[in-house]
Amino acid sequence: MRVTFTVNGRQASADDVWEGESLLYVLRERLGLPGSKNACEQGECGSCTVRLDGVPVCSCLVAAGQAQGREVTTVEGLAGPEGELSTVQQAFVDAGAVQCGFCTPGLLVAADELLERNPEPSDGDIREALSGNLCRCTGYEKILDAVRLAAARTEGAV
């Protein structure tokens, strides 16, 4: 089947999609967007988190056909038009929140969504919002730092 949807603001189509393919597979293997990650492919780790019409979802659990006609935002869509890093991306780099980085794309999409709806999250809010994203390297301390930093920088810019 053919699947057409908007990804990071641009229309994209994939042909010959098998009905069992996930949105994650189509993004990674058919649309050349491997930023969303495949750590568990069972909806437990959050590494494949994308936004579907604004809502964070595990793209491994979304059938590709379900994305037909909808808007998808992936980690590749977070940076600005000239490639400038978004506030949350920059904060992850600066705070040392990236080690192996495999969890990073999903965490960035989740953190970006958190800060959009809650610009001044408490630590508890951050932990709750990111509790669906597993990280095995950092122990999460620097990830907390990064989200706090992104919130503070956003606040400072206002």
Binding site: P34, S36, T74, L85, Q89, F92
Partner: peptide, 21 residues
């Protein structure tokens, strides 16, 4: 000093072994 691969990793451009094509 910050990681030289940090920007690639936050933009999704860093090529992991499962991303190869």
């Amino acid at each position: 000093t910050l990681r030289p691969d940090g920007v690639l990793k936050v933009t999704g451009e860093f090529a992991y072994s499962s991303d190869l094509w």
